[in-house]
Simulated assay, not measured.
Amino acid sequence: MSESDDPGWLPDEYDPDADLRERLPIMAEIDRLSGAELHAADDRGLTKILGTPFDLEENPTGTLTLHVGGSQYNWDYEIVVPSSDTPPFVRSVDMEQDIEDYEQAKKTELENVDVRIYTVDHDRLEETEVAA
């Protein structure tokens, strides 16, 4: 996609060639009213539609976690980019329970992921996709 094709809601700072740690905070800033949708793929070629980005958190060690899908206070997925050399991953969450059960019920869905914005740069995930 050329710059002239970029949707008006895409922040100018978004660089599709940057690593996920640099792109994730910009993805979190995308206006929810834009209808932006994040897609993820792992190194096995599995893809998953995650949905709309919401809040980004950074813990004291520098790990980034972006809440995605569902609604702002009841999200479906977390995109996690550790501060260490550990590859980024996507985990599903179930917000319909108390905090202890919520923490224990988190399930890693995709490991070593790349995350892209649908209609902006999601075609970059096609290189890793496998037939279902």
Rank of each mutant, 00 (worst) to 15 (best):
N74L: 10
E29L: 09
W9R: 12
E78L: 07
K48R: 15
F54N: 10
R32A: 15
G51Y: 04
R91C: 12
L66K: 11
T63G: 07
Y73L: 02
Y73N: 12
T128R: 13
S92G: 15
T63F: 00
R116P: 04
E78Y: 04
S71R: 00
E37T: 13
L24T: 10
T61K: 07
P25V: 12
V68F: 00
I79L: 01
D101Y: 01
Y118H: 14
W75F: 06
D12L: 12
E29G: 10
I49V: 15
D121M: 08
E129C: 08
P25F: 04
G45K: 03
D98V: 03
W9T: 06
V80N: 03
P88V: 01
R32Y: 06
E22R: 11
W9C: 07
E3D: 15
S2Q: 14
R116V: 02
D42V: 03
I117N: 02
K48D: 12
L20S: 11
R32W: 09
H39V: 11
E129Y: 10
V68N: 06
A41R: 01
S71C: 11
D19G: 09
L66P: 08
L50T: 02
I79Q: 06
V90G: 11
P60M: 04
V90L: 06
M1I: 08
E127Y: 10
R116M: 06
D15N: 14
D12P: 02
F89A: 12
P60G: 07
D94G: 09
G70M: 05
I49Y: 02
L46T: 05
T108V: 15
E78N: 06
P16V: 07
V80L: 01
G51H: 04
S71I: 00
D12N: 09
V68P: 04
S4G: 08
D31G: 13
A40Y: 08
D123I: 12
E111D: 15
R23K: 14
D15M: 05
S4I: 14
V90F: 10
D85R: 05
T86R: 13
E100Y: 08
P16D: 10
A105L: 03
Q104H: 11
P16N: 12
V80I: 12
A36M: 09
